[in-house]
Design a protein around this nucleic acid. Structure first.
Length: 583
RNA sequence: GCGCCUGUAGCUCAGUCGGAUAGAGCAACUGCCUUCUAAGCAGUGGGUCAGGGGUUCGAAUCCCUUCAGGCGCGCCA
């Protein structure tokens, strides 16, 4: 299990930050260490050791958590990695490194195992003082600033405003929300964006559908549009329209009143979407970008014109094509149709140009996995405007298979067989739904069985984690009633049992979990960590009395509990899941 | 036909630029409430990492190939 890897370039930077680069440093000195996380302490020491051994060319330093407890607390395969370059056997290199490391006060043991792993075990005093740091610094101790203020734009959900959100949108919303929180907490400056496809015929069709139902309500024989939306919510909108606007549109042709009805319905749909997202616990979007406005500001025209000037647009068969094959795409794409209309892709070009020009360091699009075929053409757009595609990341969110009693439940907006996000929230709950989504990586298929997720608590891992937090809250409250305040001058040295030391180590791994999740854009790693930490706590709780006769020991254990609670609630907050104090 | 994704325990899924004896939850079975929250704990069983080949100190992970499933390949939106 690799938790950290740095290139030597990055190490150079760390070295500068730490402002110490003498070889032959005194490993007994404490002052250079312990200003940062457990991982950084180890990486720093390894780096110094390599310097002292005049090893200057290794590719990277990886820090892993070994599977087996007997292999120590952390481990590095470093020696195997550099064996080839140094033309020395890995075990020999590992030995030299280990001998040097041994001298550091933070290690109880430094061992060589297997083909050349270096396994380190921390001293109890190191663990105790690290826990103390966590308790006093809280959030700041848990953070690795990997973003460095870089600006990130994350676009997600972006569902057409032609109806309520459904469970597929919810998965994208949960993923995007957690990712944004995670990046923000990792030192990035994040903007959340929702792109509204309000220019095409879909919105017009929405208005037409409501118009038809409205006329039918008034007994007028207006035929329903063939591709119209047949969901029940359309009927509701027609009823609402009648209630609000009266019979004023009766027997009026769509040409005359269509614009009114469409915009009335459209804004209500958008409001519905916003409400559902809010109820789902998704943080407010910073920007709602309207496709229509991109058109009306002339950005589509300008974007195509700019490509044209670069010779990337040509005419064929009375249509205009973007030469995306000049980049990564397998065929050129039409941007202006034979009838003179722009294609959907044309506004996508303009929209992504717009994104690029806003000066972000990283642009993340979260799409439904069925759009994966669009990646090459959007990447082509990026390149056509002279940007590096490495700053563009697409996260594909796989479909959710909604199930009922083990059977697939087919949804169709047009057909009207539809379970809305609002209904899911009422039926299942926002926390459960979000947590289940975040327990899988985005790009994996997911069955969401309404009967399973609502049935027993055991099926819902979110309770398991929240319960640990609530238990601790309850214990802390209990202690407070007895006049004991956690974290106040406790002697953490009293935490000497292996379960206690194990919990401390687990807490100290949290910053690395966050960092890794942020680096890979995979928040689900946090979810797995949470379940492990909660599990360790439940076991500990079961076997130990926190508040007991020994006042000193009680205070120490309360401090440990507080540390666990800090991490649990922090991680849940990043996932966008609540951490109740009582359950 | 071409491209992308997926294939890991009965089920749902983790497994980190390739690392040590492949993990968790659920389901099944067996125990644990006079205690700070039993939405909990402890234990047991469960594997040809879809198949085959290659790369190397070392492969679930990388490459090739076969098979199975999903999705995408519009002058639709």
């Amino acid at each position: 299990m690799i938790l950290y890897a740095v290139t030597f370039e990055k190490l150079g930077k760390m070295r500068q930050q730490l402002a110490i680069c003498r070889p032959n440093i005194d490993f007994q000195k404490k002052r250079h260490l312990h200003c940062t996380s457990m991982k950084k302490d180890v990486v720093f020491l390894l780096m110094k050791t390599l310097e002292a051994l005049c090893i200057t060319s290794p590719p990277s330093i990886e820090i892993e958590v070994p599977r087996e407890k007997t292999f120590g607390d952390l481990s590095t395969p470093l020696a195997m990695g550099i064996a080839k370059v140094l033309k020395k056997p890995p075990k020999k290199i590992a030995e030299e490194i280990a001998n040097k490391l041994q001298a550091s006060y933070i290690f109880e043991k430094v061992e060589i195992a297997g083909p050349g792993f270096i396994n380190v075990t921390f001293t109890q005093s190191y663990l105790h003082s690290s826990l103390q740091q966590l308790l006093s610094a809280e959030k700041s101790y848990l953070r690795e600033n990997i973003g460095n203020g870089k600006k990130v734009l994350v676009e997600f959900v972006s569902a057409n405003p032609t109806g309520p959100l459904h469970i597929g949108h919810a998965r994208g919303a949960a993923a995007g929300n957690a990712l944004c929180n995670l990046l923000e907490e990792s030192g990035f400056k994040v903007d959340r964006e929702y792109y509204i496809n309000d220019a095409g015929r879909q919105v017009k069709l929405l208005g037409l559908s409501v118009y038809a139902r409205y006329q039918q309500l008034l007994g007028c024989d207006v035929s329903f549009p063939e591709d119209g939306y047949r969901g029940r919510y359309i009927d509701d909108e027609a009823v609402a329209l009648l209630a609000e606007k009266g019979e004023g549109y009766k027997e009026t042709s769509f040409d005359l009143c269509g614009a009114d009805i469409t915009s009335w319905t459209y804004s209500r749909m958008l409001e519905l979407i916003r409400t559902d997202l809010r109820r789902f616990g998704i943080k407010e979007f910073d920007f709602w970008v309207s496709e229509k406005e991109i058109f009306s500001r002339g950005e589509v025209r300008d974007a195509i014109e700019s490509l044209k000037q670069n010779g990337l647009i040509y005419e064929r068969d009375q249509a205009f094509w973007f030469r995306s094959t000049a980049f990564n795409d397998d065929k050129d794409r039409v941007v202006i149709k034979r009838d003179g209309e722009y294609t959907y892709f044309a506004s996508d070009i303009a929209y992504h140009k717009n994104k690029l020009e806003r000066g972000y360091d990283i642009i993340v699009d979260i799409w439904g996995a069925d759009h994966h075929g669009y990646i090459p053409r959007i990447e082509s757009v990026m390149q056509a405007f002279g940007y590096d595609i490495t700053k563009f990341k697409v996260i594909l969110v796989q479909m959710v298979n909604l199930m009922k009693q083990g059977e697939p439940f087919q949804m169709s907006k047009r057909a009207g067989t539809f379970v809305t996000l609002g209904e899911i929230i009422d039926l299942v709950g926002a926390d459960i739904t979000k947590f289940i989504f975040l327990t899988r990586k985005a790009d994996s298929h997911l069955d969401f069985d309404l009967d399973v997720v609502t049935a027993t608590s055991a099926e819902n891992p979110v309770f398991y984690v929240q319960y640990a937090n609530a238990r601790i809250s309850s214990i802390l409250a209990n202690a407070r009633d007895q006049g004991i305040e956690a974290g106040q001058g406790a002697d953490l040295g009293r935490l000497g049992e292996s379960s206690e030391l194990g919990l401390i180590k687990k807490l100290l791994l949290y910053p690395m979990v966050l960092e890794n999740a942020a680096r890979t854009l995979e928040p689900h790693r946090i979810t797995f960590y949470l379940q492990e930490l909660a599990g360790m706590f439940h076991t500990y709780y079961h076997d130990h009395r926190i508040i007991g006769a020994d006042a000193e020991l009680s205070r120490a254990r309360l401090s440990l509990c507080k540390g666990i609670k800090i991490v649990l609630s922090d991680a849940l907050a990043i996932l966008g899941v609540s951490a109740p104090d009582k359950m």
